[in-house]
């Protein structure tokens, strides 16, 4: 049988049988990614807004740093967080390594620069009349920025979608900090990496197809939110 058709059939079989390993990997992928996206949004969007609306010396350096952080390989982020949460590290006492929480931490670190950057671009491209209009109608500085964010919700939702895309697709952080523990920290991507390692290419590709389907569904949902 042809490689692709085999993968396709395997994917359908796995879905039809609700294979417990696949169900668990899909659940872990989604739950961990959504948590990371949520935390990254809480940190990254305000950071992007703050960077976008304020002027301070060294702002250009801050933006350059943000762009550099966006290019960080996932394994570097993984290694960095690993060194902090390992028993040998400063937060070792919390016993976070090889848990879903560790993956959430790593993926949050990964997604914050992306969300901050997308938010920053949205603000750079914003209509320059928004803030003065809010101010002259009686908004304080905070209320005027709040209005700006509301007016830019398409761009900011795009930031959230980009961040989610990055974390659900990444394998380095999940593998290094989660440890690919079956039924616990095994995600779609680490499962694909493992099956590929075992030479189960068709199974790996099948999991890839399922991951894409899942990502499609989540993105459709986020798009629905964006239209609101």
């Amino acid at each position: 049988m042809d490689f692709f058709t085999e993968s396709f059939h395997t994917a359908l079989d796995l879905i039809a049988a609700r294979d417990p390993d696949v169900v668990s990997a899909v659940t872990v992928s989604i739950v961990v990614s959504l948590w990371s996206t949520l935390f990254a949004a809480l940190a990254g969007i305000p950071a992007g807004v703050a960077l976008g609306v304020s002027e301070f010396p060294g702002k250009r350096w801050a933006v350059t740093l943000l762009n550099t952080l966006m290019a960080l390989p996932t394994v570097v982020v993984g290694l960095f967080v690993y060194s902090i949460i390992s028993r040998q590290g400063p937060l070792g006492g919390m016993g976070l390594l090889f848990t879903p929480s560790a993956m959430v931490i790593g993926q949050t670190v990964l997604a914050v620069p992306i969300m901050a950057n997308f938010t920053l671009s949205a603000i750079k491209g914003a209509d320059p009349r928004i803030i003065p209009t809010a101010l002259t109608l009686g908004a304080g500085p905070f209320a005027s920025v709040r209005r700006l964010v509301i007016e830019l919700r398409f761009g900011i939702m795009a930031a959230v979608i980009a961040g989610f895309g990055r974390v659900i697709a990444e394998v380095g952080v999940a593998m290094m900090l989660g440890g690919n523990i079956r039924g616990y920290t095994r995600t779609m991507t680490t499962a694909i990496a493992m099956e590929t390692g075992k030479g189960e290419f068709a199974l790996g590709l099948a999991l890839g197809l399922i991951l894409m389907t899942v990502a499609l569904i989540v993105n459709l949902f986020l798009n629905f939110l964006q239209q609101r």
Partner: peptide, 30 residues
């Protein structure tokens, strides 16, 4: 001071949303 004075731009920016939410914006702030 800004709450005593209002500027109307020559091509004004209307917020996304209904006419009501636009006209009520400054009232809500107050």
């Amino acid at each position: 001071l800004r709450r005593a004075v209002t500027l109307l731009h020559q091509s004004p920016y209307l917020f996304n949303g209904s006419v009501f939410s636009n006209v009520a914006y400054g009232l809500k702030l107050r």
